[in-house]
Amino acid sequence: MNEREKILTRIREALKVPAPSPGTHAPASHLPVPGVPGLPSLRVPAPTTAAPVEARRWLPKVGPGFPEQLALFAQNAADLKATFQIFANWTELNAALVQLRDAENWQRVASHQSELSSQACAALQRPVCWTDKGYDVLALESCDVGVTECDALIAQTGSVLVTSRSAGGRALSVLPPHHVVIARREQLVADLPAAFALLQQKYAPEFPSMMGFITGPSRTGDIERILVLGAHGPKKLTIFCV
């Protein structure tokens, strides 16, 4: 028997005794006293199945329409200390990019070949390190900004969903000190369940080897639990939407 077999055998042996159903020992609910104002009741409708579709009912609420979702995304991005802007057209977006370039004095840009990011790079008029076909790590590291596309923006959490296919590989969105995401407004989805549904629909079964949610710029609280941005990944995250 190899280790795989040994471990699986041990698991099967162990599982012969059934376990009590989950949460049965949970503390009693705090019933409210009728007619006495006090703490809210902790009793809640219990989920009946663990099916993922139900998650939407428990997770933070997201409004149904685009304007609400956009507002929620903007609010979340602001809380996360990311910059989010939506533009009426490409001209405005390009102008904002150029302004950012000059403000931060970008000399070298890193990006990948795709419609939105290529267009952005054209506007920036700086030498570009393209990651698509492999790249020199030191060259990428010395870029001032990484410009990528994404798969979705998630209103519920203010996250950007990227994959190794949609965002020029694994390192581009995390190695340069500033990550700029260029997205279309149609890419805004309501919540995490919607984001996972999108991944399934777009890629299954040949998923990209890396898929990830980016929720604000890189951060740490490891020194006295004080928030510092730019621990290892980008110090800045800018999301431009058109």
């Binding site: 933070p60 979340n76 809380d79 990948h112 990651t131 698509d132 076909k133 492999g134 790249y135 959490t157 203010g158 996250s159 190794s164 296919r165 020029g168 590989g169 694994r170 390192a171 581009l172 995390v174 998923f207 990209p208 080897s209 890396m210 898929m211 990830g212 949610f213 980016i214 929720t215 604000g216 710029p217 890189s218 951060r219 609280g221 990944g233």
Partner: peptide, 24 residues
Amino acid sequence: GAGQPLTCYNTMYGGPRQPGEADG
């Protein structure tokens, strides 16, 4: 764990670098 809405990076890895991918 930390009182955050979502941790900054949540990443799912499905394999080593795949054909056509830039890095990994």
